[in-house]
Simulated assay, not measured.
Amino acid sequence: MIKLIFDALTPKQARIAAVLYQEGSRRGINVVITCRNYFHLADILRIYGVPYVCIGRYGVTPYEKLVYGLERQRELVEYVKDVDGMLSFPSPDLARVVFGLGKPVIVMNDTPHASHVNRLVIPLSEVLIAPAAIPQEIWKSYCPRRVVTFDGVFEYMWISKFAPNEEVIKRLGLRRGEYVVFRPEEEHASYYLWNTATIRMRLVEEFRKRGYVIVNVPRYSDQIINGVFNLTEAVDHLQLAYFSAGVVTGGATMATEAALLGVPALSYFPGDYYLDRYIRDRGAPLFRCRDLESCLVAVEEMLKIGRTSPPKFEDPTPLILETATEVVSLREN
């Protein structure tokens, strides 16, 4: 049995790891999952019921990122010694260890703007797996040896398997269509160079004026908002999104998930994100804004449109596992 290791660093990556673990088990592939201590990360893995081990923590300052990363690398060595390779989103800690032990690195990615981790990981990889909607020339500065693409987005790996369960929101005291989910920006990430907290708080007030309950899902403790429903222990975010009036985020994942479910979603991430137009062209109700004025206009549009029929995409799960198997087999031969 092939044994691969996945280092989940975000809730999105935890979902991908869980799907690969479950599908890999059916294909004779053992996916070992590691993670770090970070808001909602281990919670998502517990929701999926997959085995995992959390190692180390998230650093906020450059000094912490370096020191905590070095500490994680030393601990990860013990989990990498008997694996056949890495199958993961970019994890500098895991990639350094796997590469150092002479094992192949297979990396998935849909965030070319995350230049710090991409510069550290993609050059070490045997193959990069990415959505075809991202222009291949965008990846060239990271020197991938080979790029494999698919007609879809990674979020479809779990959206395609989603089953609504209204009891999840009822247990929280929430009512269908009467709340809006907020996911703050990734302000402590190395690539996040903007200050968008003012826009977030103005949007919170806009929806509150319209009578909606605000469900805030913070990434960090300093993003807890007074006077709203702060969800600091994870429930299934897909259930939250599905029964909401809309989702607003400073990132991309929760907006993409909601839009793929047919729920109107707004992202105020100020950088370029190549998948937005691709998703919208397929009929998903996904909106983007870069300043307060355009964000307020987008609020009007998303509430006017409301729910739509969920679009269809390619599930990349089989391609990912087949590509990883091929890379490991070639290395062994």
Results as ranks from 00 to 15, higher is better:
residue 10 T to P: 03
residue 14 A to L: 00
residue 17 A to E: 02
residue 17 A to H: 02
residue 21 Y to W: 13
residue 23 E to W: 08
residue 24 G to I: 01
residue 29 I to P: 01
residue 33 I to L: 08
residue 34 T to M: 07
residue 37 N to Y: 13
residue 39 F to V: 08
residue 42 A to H: 13
residue 45 L to Q: 01
residue 48 Y to A: 05
residue 50 V to A: 06
residue 50 V to L: 09
residue 51 P to R: 09
residue 51 P to C: 09
residue 53 V to F: 15
residue 56 G to H: 11
residue 56 G to D: 10
residue 57 R to A: 14
residue 58 Y to C: 08
residue 61 T to N: 14
residue 61 T to A: 13
residue 65 K to M: 12
residue 68 Y to I: 03
residue 69 G to F: 06
residue 71 E to Q: 15
residue 73 Q to W: 14
residue 73 Q to I: 13
residue 74 R to H: 13
residue 77 V to N: 10
residue 78 E to N: 14
residue 78 E to M: 12
residue 86 M to W: 10
residue 90 P to S: 15
residue 98 V to E: 05
residue 100 G to T: 11
residue 101 L to C: 09
residue 102 G to I: 15
residue 106 I to A: 04
residue 108 M to H: 02
residue 113 H to P: 12
residue 113 H to N: 13
residue 114 A to E: 15
residue 122 I to E: 01
residue 125 S to I: 01
residue 126 E to S: 07
residue 129 I to W: 01
residue 130 A to L: 03
residue 132 A to Y: 12
residue 132 A to Q: 14
residue 138 I to E: 15
residue 139 W to Y: 09
residue 140 K to A: 15
residue 140 K to L: 14
residue 142 Y to C: 02
residue 143 C to L: 13
residue 143 C to S: 14
residue 148 V to R: 03
residue 148 V to D: 00
residue 149 T to M: 06
residue 149 T to H: 07
residue 151 D to V: 04
residue 151 D to Y: 10
residue 153 V to K: 03
residue 154 F to I: 01
residue 157 M to P: 01
residue 157 M to F: 04
residue 157 M to A: 05
residue 158 W to D: 00
residue 160 S to A: 08
residue 162 F to W: 04
residue 164 P to A: 09
residue 166 E to D: 09
residue 166 E to Q: 13
residue 171 R to E: 09
residue 173 G to S: 06
residue 180 V to G: 01
residue 180 V to D: 02
residue 185 E to M: 10
residue 191 Y to D: 05
residue 194 W to I: 03
residue 195 N to A: 09
residue 197 A to D: 06
residue 197 A to T: 11
residue 201 M to I: 11
residue 205 E to A: 10
residue 207 F to K: 02
residue 209 K to N: 06
residue 210 R to F: 12
residue 212 Y to D: 03
residue 212 Y to M: 05
residue 213 V to I: 07
residue 214 I to G: 00
residue 216 N to S: 07
residue 217 V to L: 09
residue 218 P to V: 03
residue 219 R to W: 03
residue 219 R to V: 00
residue 219 R to Y: 05
residue 223 Q to V: 01
residue 225 I to P: 00
residue 228 V to T: 14
residue 230 N to E: 08
residue 231 L to K: 03
residue 232 T to R: 10
residue 233 E to C: 09
residue 234 A to P: 02
residue 239 Q to V: 10
residue 246 G to D: 02
residue 249 T to C: 09
residue 250 G to Y: 11
residue 253 T to F: 04
residue 256 T to K: 12
residue 257 E to C: 15
residue 257 E to H: 11
residue 265 A to M: 03
residue 266 L to K: 02
residue 272 D to P: 09
residue 274 Y to T: 05
residue 275 L to I: 08
residue 276 D to N: 15
residue 278 Y to I: 04
residue 281 D to E: 14
residue 285 P to K: 02
residue 288 R to P: 00
residue 289 C to R: 01
residue 290 R to E: 06
residue 298 A to Q: 12
residue 299 V to D: 05
residue 303 L to F: 11
residue 304 K to C: 08
residue 304 K to S: 11
residue 305 I to N: 05
residue 306 G to D: 06
residue 308 T to A: 15
residue 312 K to G: 07
residue 313 F to N: 03
residue 313 F to T: 05
residue 313 F to L: 08
residue 318 P to V: 08
residue 324 A to G: 07
residue 324 A to W: 04
residue 326 E to A: 12
residue 327 V to P: 05
residue 329 S to H: 10
residue 329 S to K: 12
residue 332 E to P: 05
